[in-house]
Nucleic acid binder design. Sequence first.
DNA 1: CATACTTCTGTGAACGTGCACAGTAGCGCG
DNA 2: CGCGCTACTGTGCACGTTCACAGAAGTATG
Lengths: 331, 331
Amino acid sequence: MKRPTIHDVAAAAGVSRGTVSRLLNGDRYVSPAARAAIERAIAETGYVVNRAARSLVTQRTGSVAMVLSEPDQMLFEDPNYSTLIRVAIRRLAERDISLVMMLAGNEGDRDRVIRYLRGGHADGVLLVTTHAGDPLADAVAAAAPAVSCGAVIGRENVIPYAAADDRLGARQMTEYLVSRGRKRIAMITGPMDTPGGIQRLEGFADVLGRKASRKLIAHGDWTQASGERSMTELLERAPDLDAVFVASDLMAAGALTALRAAGRRVPDDVAVGGFDDSSVATSTLPPLTTIRQPLAEMAEATIDLLLALLDGAEKPAPVVLPTELVIRESA
Amino acid sequence: MKRPTIHDVAAAAGVSRGTVSRLLNGDRYVSPAARAAIERAIAETGYVVNRAARSLVTQRTGSVAMVLSEPDQMLFEDPNYSTLIRVAIRRLAERDISLVMMLAGNEGDRDRVIRYLRGGHADGVLLVTTHAGDPLADAVAAAAPAVSCGAVIGRENVIPYAAADDRLGARQMTEYLVSRGRKRIAMITGPMDTPGGIQRLEGFADVLGRKASRKLIAHGDWTQASGERSMTELLERAPDLDAVFVASDLMAAGALTALRAAGRRVPDDVAVGGFDDSSVATSTLPPLTTIRQPLAEMAEATIDLLLALLDGAEKPAPVVLPTELVIRESA
DNA sequence: CATACTTCTGTGAACGTGCACAGTAGCGCG
DNA sequence: CGCGCTACTGTGCACGTTCACAGAAGTATG
């Protein structure tokens, strides 16, 4: 009933441990005869390598930690993360690397994560954080090879990342609104300590220049409620606005509610542009014209960076991927 | 630069490995003096136990695998899973157990998972599957202690689970619709090979009895599109229906679209009841009256079951938790 | 034929723990 | 004083693997 070891396989195949080990690790120098015998023995015994024993000698664990540094709540709601998790599991599994999940929402969690990494329990880290000045970033980067999906503000040169071109996306949407003849275009941004918050506003300003007055800009926090609140605020400040670019679909859904409450028709009176092309974009009324982020490609690119790092790459360059305008009915 | 070992700590504290090991594992019989010296030595050296070495001798890994057995796509969309993942990480971390994620969508993945478990690489399994007759269930249960969040159809006695009382929830909603004076109540179910598909229909039939005719029942697949399609179909079959109970909020959102297209007002002409109380429930127009599942409690209960199993419990009893009616505007 | 080189194989030593066991010191008790 | 008991400590071994090394067998080269 005991689990078979490499000894058992060696015995069954009539060779020594060393030879079996060489086959397992893809070394050259295993004769065809030995190879066949070992493979049969493995199949017969149902042998599976003991990773603990292997780790002990190789000093590698064959696992990567995904560190989620966010206030618990809003995490995961974002389809962004779902895609990343899925892609990460799949791609890493191909290399026989397992993904272990860690939360780093509070002080205690952070310590645990750092200890875990310092203890060498993971070969690399997939950092998921959006907030600027996250105290975790430096500690993590010091403890293990780390990458991030989305830039870590202020640590762009420390932690390689793959991200969507937020600024480009914001320009695409703003240009589209302008091209549809809108004259008074407002914006609801994300939190200004996140890349999406900062860069989407930059793109907006790129296009509108002087016309992007303070009066036409409100700041949300990615939640639907904040979108509604910000929209109401904007309508008070600038009742004559005829379009609004909202930095996320979820906030845009909130904005739609506020516009409806104010009796404005969308898109007739006010055109609404979202961002993300998340699932809410199709369930709002009217469906949102928005900016699609290449989530899957971003996730793939992030994993590529991580694998490169594990293979010994020094400083892989960040990857920035283009966004795409998706036209529906809200603008 | 080498990572400190238990030897280094022992040397620094002036005791032997054994004593340090005892302290680490919470054994009795460590003198206060030794305890203090060791704790200081650990802090000074920054020692972290080597889990690989520990695993090798204890035959335990200190990790649990979350096995996701679903066609990739729809997975994670469900906030259900988000909550489960979050709770699992947090609760397991308290016991210093790490969560490793595995996908088992296709044949190859399944094999990998089974091999992984057979190899003893995880102490337990958190199985996430909804489809009846999942070939994975038995293999997993045979390879490691396993629990499931939501019943595994046909394996209720093999794999302990925690779930919401779907049947109760369906009764609550149906009774509510009846109490509001609705006479011709239709239903859009989930796939009939999932617990939610089966039991929510049962609850519906519990209340309506004979009135739950085949003509008033359509089957969806949890997607928004299927909700829309099913609603259109029902309107053709029974144009006089005045209420519809939809087995998930997402499908209900689709149903709303179909009703709008058909010119029916909600809730005036047709009352709509959803299920899940997911995030879409508040972003539809009108917001959905729905059934809240106690997601967090379900997740907690699932982890409790798993921990009990890890502690040697034989056959913990399934846990079924009550649902709650949430009244908004659609009914 | 000696030598060098290539291909392949077996062996001992380490990796860092936990655990069983043996052993020590102190103390109360008859 | 001898004995047993409690509280504590140190030591050798095993866990299953990889890796460096030594060496064997076969083949080409001088």
